[in-house]
């Protein structure tokens, strides 16, 4: 539950190139992200191992930088996206795109939809 979020090493992001992507939250998830559906994110193009940024990196980034809500467990469980949250990468089910391993491209639209809310 209480994953310390303040222990992010101070990023020396002087020369790391960024890629700009659109991230959307729906199905109730916008609640966790300042009640805002659409976010434009400047994501470091490479992760700390120097590999191209993936969805897994994006999820970490969102938790650390975008989500103000303390209930991280409603988005991430055991370091992975919480089951019951769908991801669409440019409108395609992320299961068709390699899930967390998908390498993010500039201009991508990544949509997170919760299925966990009532109907």
């Amino acid at each position: 539950m209480s994953t310390a979020t303040e222990t992010v090493p101070a990023p020396t992001q002087v020369e790391i190139p960024k890629i700009s992507i659109d991230v959307e939250f729906t199905g109730g998830l916008e609640m966790l992200f300042s009640d805002q559906r659409r976010h434009t994110i400047s994501l470091p193009a490479a992760n700390k191992d120097g590999k191209p940024a993936t969805i897994a990196d994006l999820i970490h980034y969102l938790c650390e930088h975008t989500m103000k809500d303390a209930r991280k467990d409603l988005f991430v469980l055991q370091d992975h996206l919480r089951p019951g949250i769908l991801v669409l990468i440019n409108d395609a089910d992320w299961e068709l795109e390699g899930e967390e391993a998908y390498e993010i491209q500039a201009g991508d639209n990544i949509l997170f939809v919760s299925t966990l809310h009532g109907g």
Binding site: T26, G28, M31, L86, V113, S114, T115, H117, G118, G119
Partner: peptide
Amino acid sequence: YEKEIVLYAHHKKLDYFSTECIYS
């Protein structure tokens, strides 16, 4: 499947409301 219901709503751009009951 709930997943397909959500995807159906998404792809047909249906207008729905999602929030948790405040007493739930």
